[in-house]
Design a protein around this nucleic acid. Structure first.
Length: 856
RNA sequence: GCCCGCGUGGUGGAACGGUAGACACAGGAGACUUAAAAUCUCUAGCCGCAAGGCGUGCCGGUUCGAGUCCGGCCGCGGGCACCA
C-alpha cells in the first residue's frame, strides 16, 4: 500500500495539468467567462507565506469556477518597478534590472511547485519594455485627452544629499541616509486629473455591491465630498492685488463666531509678504520644514504668524479680524485660506488660546446642563452635524436646528445677501505621478526650448531606460546621464531634452489587470479581448490597498475608456473585491545582557507545555501573532514548507484555521496537523478497496446523506469566501467516511466526491485519490458535484428551551409541528415545570425551527 | 491628529439577533505495541464533589433573547496621497 508522498505526486500532477493545458485561458463564446485575479506581487526576492495564502484563495476560486463550466482567466505577473531595486543597487552595486529579473526568476521557481492553476503564458513584469511602452502610449493618449497636466507640488527635499525623498525615507523629519532635516520644496510635476472624476468615483461606489463595506466607506471618506460656502473677506492694509481673500468653509453657520483668518504659508499673499519681510520669510521657511505627509502636518505644533493685515467681517464691516499665516493650512485644500472659529473647532481653539484671540460660541447644546462653554475654558463644542443644537449667535437669531440645517440655512442666507456662494468640494487631490527616480516608466515627453513640452511620437515608443547608469551618488541617474537626455525635439527637430521624471509605480498597477486580457497586444489592450474578459469577477488582495491602488485603478479604467482602450462596461474594473488578512507567526525573544531584544529562529526553539526554550534550556518569551518580519526572525519560507510537507499541506493550512479576511497565525503544529489530515484522506482512499461489498443496513444511505450535506456546505463555503468553514466541514465528513460501515460502492462514491470537494484546496492529493478510485480524466477538469436536495432534509429538529433567555432544556420535535403544539411540549418539559413552580408563564415565544423562550 | 477595522477557552477560531466555544492545535485518559513511532477511542470554557453559578476587552443601553444592534471608553492593527 502506497503512502502519501507529496514529493512524488505533486510534480506528477503539475505535469499532467501542463500537458492538458488545463489552466490556459481561452476566449470562446460557448462558456461564460470568469476572471479571478490576486494583486500581483512586488519581486522582493522570495515569496512569502502571505503570498501563498493570497494565491491559494484565488486558486480555490479559479479551480472551482473551472469545474462549474467557466472559461477561467487566472493570470500572474510582477509589479516590478520601484525603490527597493534602486536601494539594492546602491547597497551592493549591480543594476536594478538584473536584481529585479533575478528575483522574478526565483519567485516563479518558488510559485510553480505550489500548483496554482495559473495561465503562465500571460505572465509579464511591469518593467518589461513591452509593458511600459504601452503604458507610455496610454500616457500620451491621456495627455491628448486633457487628463494629464503639470503644476508645482511639494516634495521631501534632502538638502545634504540634494535629492527627493519618499515619505518612507523620511524618518522623524530627517533624511534616512544623510540625517539632515528634511524640507518641503516645490517642483514642477506631472498630474493625472483624477479630481475631475471625484463626484463620479464617489457616486459609483454605491454600485460596488460585492466590495467590502469598509473599503467603500474608506474610499468615500477619502474622496470626501463636502458642502460649504466660498466667499471673500475684503482686506485692510494688504499689499496691492490682495484686496480680497477667498476662503472656503464647511461651517458657514459659525461665521458669527469667527475670530481670525488663516492662510497657508504657500498662499500667494504669504509669498508676497515673504518677499519683503524677513520675519515672514523666516516663519514660512520654518513652516516648510519637516515631511510632506498629512500625518506629519497634523501632528506638528500649530504655529501662526500675525501679518498685521486685517479683514472686515462680511456682516459687520466695523468688525476686523486678524490674518495669520498658519503652518497647518494646506494650499491644496479649498482656497488655502480659512476663517477660524475657536468655539467649534478644537484646533482653532488651541490656536486662539495660544495667540489670545477671542472665542465666541454661535451655538450651544439644546439642554445645556453640565456644559462648559469654550469661552469659559471648556473644550471646543463640536457635535455631530446630525444633532440638534441651539443657535444663540447665528445669522438668523435664536434657532434650534441640526448642524446640517444650520449649514444649509447659512449658505442660503449668505447667497441672498451677496456673500459668496454654496459650493461642493472634494478632498480628493490630483494624482501626482512624477518621481525623480530611475527605476520606473519614463514619462514620454521632451522639453524643447522653442516648442515647450512636446509628446514623444508613438512610433518612438517605448522610451527605454538606459542600461548604463550608476547609483554611487544620490539623485536620479537619468538627470546626469551623458547622452540619454539629449534628443531632437519630435516637433521641430531642434536639440531638446527628455523628461527625466519617471512614473509613480501606482500607474503600473492601475491597468495591469486590463493588460492581462491581451498581454502581447501591440496596443495597450485589444478591445475584443478586453470586452470578453473584463471585468475582473473576483479581485483578491490586502486591505492596505483599500484606498490608493483601488481608487487609481477605478480612475484609470475610466480614463482608458475615454481614450478608447476599454469598453464602457469596464469602467468599474473589479466586480467583487475580497481583502484577505496576513499570515503571522510568533516571535521568540530573549534579552541580551544589555537588555536589548534578541530574536530566535523557530527552528532554534523547542516548544514544551506552551513555553519556548532555547537549546541551552533558557526560556524565551513568546510574542504571538506578530507580522512576519525578517528583522524579527519569524518569517517562514514557503519553500521549506513545501519541502517538508508538500504544497497541499501549505495550501490547506493557510485556508483552514482563520476566516480569510482575518490574520492567520502560522504554527508548525498546525502545519503538522494539516499534513496528518491529508495523509489520513490518502489512507482512507487506499483502504476502500478492502471494504466489504455490502455495507451494514442503512449505512450507505447515512454516508450518502452526509456526502450531500457536505457538497452543499462546501459549495456554500467557497462561494462566500468561508474557506475555513468549508474545511471544517471536510474534516467532519472525512471522519464520517472513515467510520462509515457502508459498502464499497457507496464509500467509493463518497471518497471520489471528497476528492472533488478538496480539489480546489489540495489539488494534487485530490487528483491522486480521484485517479486511485477510478475517476475519469483529471479531477481539475471534472464537473463539480451537485447536492441532491432530497438528501438534505431532516424530519425532526432539536429546539433549545430558554426560560427568561437562559437555556434550560431542549426538545426534539417533528420539523413541521405547529407552533402551539411546540409550546405545549415545551411547557411540559421537566426543567420548565421546575422553573414555573406551578405558575403560568407571562409569555411564550416560539421561533419555528429555532428556539422556544418562556418568559416568567 | 484624522479615516477604517478588529478584540470570544491554554491557542487559532465557529455561531441568519435565537443552545456561545463547530472544526483544529496544545493538554488529559485509554486501546493497539515487548517498547516507541504511527494510528484509533474518549475527554475537555472557568469555578464547584454536586446542585448550580460565572463567562465573548471594559461600562451602560435597546430586546422575550445581545458575541452579534446602539452609545461611551480601553487595547491592537491598516491607511493618511513619494513603501508596494
Amino acid at each position: 500500500m502506497s503512502r502519501y508522498d507529496p514529493a512524488l505526486i505533486e510534480p506528477k500532477w503539475q505535469a499532467a495539468w501542463d500537458e492538458a493545458e488545463t489552466f490556459r485561458a481561452v476566449r470562446s463564446e460557448d462558456k461564460p467567462k470568469y476572471y479571478v485575479l490576486e494583486m500581483f506581487p512586488y519581486p522582493s526576492g522570495r515569496i512569502h507565506i502571505g503570498h501563498v495564502r493570497n494565491y491559494t484563495m484565488g486558486d480555490v476560486i479559479a479551480r472551482y469556477k473551472l469545474s462549474t463550466g467557466h472559461n477561467v482567466l487566472h493570470p500572474m505577473g510582477f509589479d516590478a518597478f520601484g525603490m527597493p531595486a534602486e536601494n539594492a543597487a546602491m547597497a551592493s552595486g549591480g543594476h536594478p534590472k538584473d536584481w529585479t529579473y533575478a528575483n522574478i526568476d526565483t519567485m516563479v521557481a518558488q510559485m510553480k511547485p505550489l500548483g496554482f492553476g495559473l495561465d503562465w503564458s500571460r505572465m509579464f513584469a511591469t518593467c518589461d519594455p513591452e509593458y511600459y511602452g504601452q503604458q507610455q502610449a496610454l500616457f500620451l493618449d491621456f495627455l491628448k485627452a486633457g487628463l494629464v497636466y503639470r503644476k508645482n507640488a511639494v516634495v521631501n527635499w534632502d538638502p545634504v544629499d540634494m535629492t527627493v525623498l519618499a515619505n518612507e525615507q523620511v524618518i522623524e523629519a530627517k533624511g534616512w541616509r544623510s540625517g539632515a532635516e528634511v524640507e518641503r520644496r516645490e517642483l514642477t510635476q506631472w498630474f493625472f486629473k483624477i479630481s475631475d472624476f471625484a463626484g463620479e468615483l464617489l457616486e459609483a461606489i454605491d454600485g460596488l455591491d460585492d466590495w467590502p463595506a469598509k473599503v467603500k466607506l474608506m474610499q468615500a471618506n477619502w474622496i470626501g465630498r463636502s458642502r460649504g460656502l466660498q466667499f471673500a473677506f475684503s482686506t485692510v492694509d494688504a499689499p496691492e492685488g490682495f484686496d480680497r481673500i477667498e476662503v472656503y468653509t464647511t461651517r458657514p453657520d459659525t461665521l458669527m463666531g469667527a475670530s481670525f483668518v488663516g492662510i497657508s504659508p504657500d498662499h500667494p499673499l504669504a509669498r508676497q509678504l515673504e518677499r519683503h519681510d524677513p520675519k515672514v520669510a523666516a516663519f514660512c521657511a520654518e513652516a516648510r520644514r519637516g515631511g510632506t505627509t498629512e500625518e506629519a502636518l497634523e501632528k506638528a505644533e500649530k504655529l501662526g504668524f500675525d501679518t498685521g493685515i486685517t479683514v472686515r467681517h462680511p456682516f459687520d464691516t466695523a468688525w476686523e479680524l486678524p490674518v495669520y499665516i498658519a503652518n497647518f493650512i494646506l494650499m491644496d485644500y479649498g482656497t488655502g485660506a480659512i476663517f477660524g472659529c475657536p468655539a467649534h473647532d478644537q484646533r482653532d481653539l488651541d490656536f486662539a488660546r495660544k495667540y489670545e484671540l477671542p472665542v465666541r460660541s454661535t451655538f450651544e447644546p439644546v439642554e445645556a446642563t453640565e456644559f462648559t462653554p469654550p469661552e469659559e475654558g471648556g473644550p471646543a463644542y463640536v457635535p455631530p452635524k446630525s444633532e440638534q443644537v441651539k443657535y444663540i449667535n447665528g445669522l438668523e437669531g435664536v434657532q434650534i436646528w441640526t448642524g446640517e440645517e444650520g449649514v444649509e440655512r447659512a449658505v442660503d442666507f449668505c447667497e441672498s445677501h451677496g456673500v459668496g456662494q454654496g459650493v461642493t468640494k472634494y478632498r480628493l487631490r490630483d494624482w501626482g505621478l512624477s518621481r525623480q527616480r530611475y527605476w520606473g516608466c519614463p514619462i514620454p515627453v521632451v522639453h524643447c526650448e522653442a516648442c515647450g513640452t512636446v509628446p514623444e511620437k508613438k512610433e518612438n515608443l517605448p522610451v527605454r531606460l538606459p542600461d548604463d547608469v550608476s547609483f554611487d551618488v544620490p539623485g536620479n541617474p537619468l538627470d546626469r546621464h551623458p547622452t540619454w537626455r539629449d534628443v531632437p525635439c519630435p516637433q521641430c527637430g531642434a536639440p531638446a531634452q527628455r523628461e527625466t521624471d519617471t512614473m509613480d509605480t501606482f500607474v503600473d498597477s492601475s491597468w495591469y489587470f486590463a493588460r492581462f486580457t491581451a498581454p502581447r497586444a501591440e496596443t495597450p489592450t485589444s478591445m475584443e479581448d478586453a470586452s470578453y474578459w473584463m471585468n475582473v469577477d473576483q479581485y483578491i488582495g490586502g486591505i492596505e490597498h483599500a484606498i490608493l491602488h483601488l481608487l487609481y485603478s477605478r480612475f484609470f479604467a475610466r480614463a482608458m475608456h475615454i481614450t478608447g482602450h476599454l469598453p464602457q462596461t469596464a469602467i468599474e474594473p473589479f466586480d467583487a473585491l475580497f481583502t484577505q488578512g496576513m499570515v503571522t507567526h510568533a516571535i521568540y525573544q530573549t534579552k541580551s545582557p544589555e537588555g536589548r531584544p534578541v530574536y530566535h529562529y523557530p527552528e532554534d526553539v523547542v516548544l514544551r507545555d506552551g513555553k519556548a526554550f532555547l537549546k541551552d534550556g533558557t526560556e524565551a518569551e513568546i510574542i504571538p501573532s506578530a507580522k512576519m518580519s525578517k528583522s524579527k526572525n519569524n518569517v517562514v519560507d514557503p519553500q521549506d514548507i513545501v519541502r517538508t510537507y508538500g504544497a497541499d499541506t501549505a495550501r490547506w493550512f493557510v485556508l483552514s484555521d482563520s476566516p480569510p479576511e482575518r490574520d492567520v497565525e502560522w504554527t508548525a503544529a498546525g502545519a503538522e496537523a494539516a499534513h496528518r489530515h491529508l495523509s489520513r484522506v490518502h489512507r482512507i482512499a487506499t483502504e476502500i478497496a478492502g471494504a466489504p461489498e455490502q455495507g451494514e443496513a442503512g449505512a450507505d444511505e447515512a454516508l450518502l446523506k452526509a456526502m450531500h450535506k457536505c457538497i452543499f456546505d462546501v459549495k456554500q463555503g467557497i462561494e462566500s469566501f468561508g474557506f475555513n468553514a468549508a474545511i471544517a466541514r471536510l474534516y467532519a465528513f472525512t471522519g464520517t467516511l472513515q467510520k462509515s460501515a457502508a459498502g464499497r460502492a457507496a464509500k467509493t462514491e463518497a471518497a471520489k466526491t471528497l476528492a472533488q470537494l478538496m480539489a480546489p484546496m489540495t489539488p494534487h492529493l485530490a487528483e491522486d485519490v480521484w485517479h486511485m478510485l477510478g475517476g475519469e480524466g483529471l479531477v481539475a477538469e471534472a464537473t463539480w458535484p451537485k447536492a441532491d436536495e432530497a438528501m438534505l432534509v431532516e424530519d425532526s429538529v432539536t429546539l433549545p428551551i430558554q426560560v427568561n433567555g437562559k437555556r434550560r432544556s431542549e426538545i426534539t420535535v417533528a420539523k413541521d409541528m405547529p407552533k402551539d403544539e411546540v409550546e405545549k411540549v415545551a411547557l411540559a418539559d421537566e426543567a420548565v415545570q421546575r422553573a414555573l413552580e406551578g405558575g403560568a408563564p407571562k409569555k411564550v415565544i416560539v421561533v419555528p425551527g429555532r428556539i422556544v423562550n418562556v418568559v416568567l
